[in-house]
């Protein structure tokens, strides 16, 4: 176990809705939900962070939550869309934010980010480093 990632954590207080930051100090997403599994003794443990509307809309609940979820499903390219997952093994540290050991663009949470960069922002002159 990594010393910077605590073994036991209060999920509601210390984890949900926290900012996720990548290895270059750039923001990635928020901890919109968590995926848990149970160990042999029935204790829950976190296996992944889930991000995006697919994760936060169900938490929002009520009619707005259902609507946002429905829109997200409709717009998502996959037939059975799953929320973006960031596995716990790339989490380097949890302090005031959840810090990853990988760059933002390599995570599933940055799909929309990458798409907008590729199709819109990156195509406007002067957007920064040249297209790769």
């Amino acid at each position: 176990m990594n010393a910077d990632v605590p073994d036991v954590i209060d999920v509601g207080l210390r984890f949900l809705d926290r900012q996720i930051i990548d290895c270059n100090d750039r923001e990635v997403a928020k901890v919109d939900d968590l995926e848990a599994a149970f160990d042999g003794e029935g204790r829950p443990y976190v296996i992944a962070i889930m991000c995006g509307p697919g994760a936060w809309a169900p938490r929002l609940g009520g009619r707005p939550g259902r609507w946002i979820l429905a829109i997200w499903r409709r717009l998502h390219p996959a037939v059975e869309p799953e929320p973006a997952r960031i596995p716990m093994n790339v989490v380097a540290k949890i302090d005031s934010a959840v810090r990853l050991s990988v760059p933002r663009t390599s995570t599933a949470a940055a799909t929309l980010d990458r798409w907008v960069d590729h199709h819109v922002i990156g195509r406007i002159p002067g957007a920064g480093n040249e297209h790769v």
Binding site: R26, D113, I121
Partner: peptide, 22 residues
């Protein structure tokens, strides 16, 4: 951007914060 946790900033290049600029 801050609500959704996206990369933001007036000092970073637009490609570093595409959703913020969008």
């Amino acid at each position: 951007s801050q609500f959704f946790g996206w990369s933001w900033g007036k000092l970073v290049s637009p490609r570093e914060a595409p959703l913020f600029h969008a």
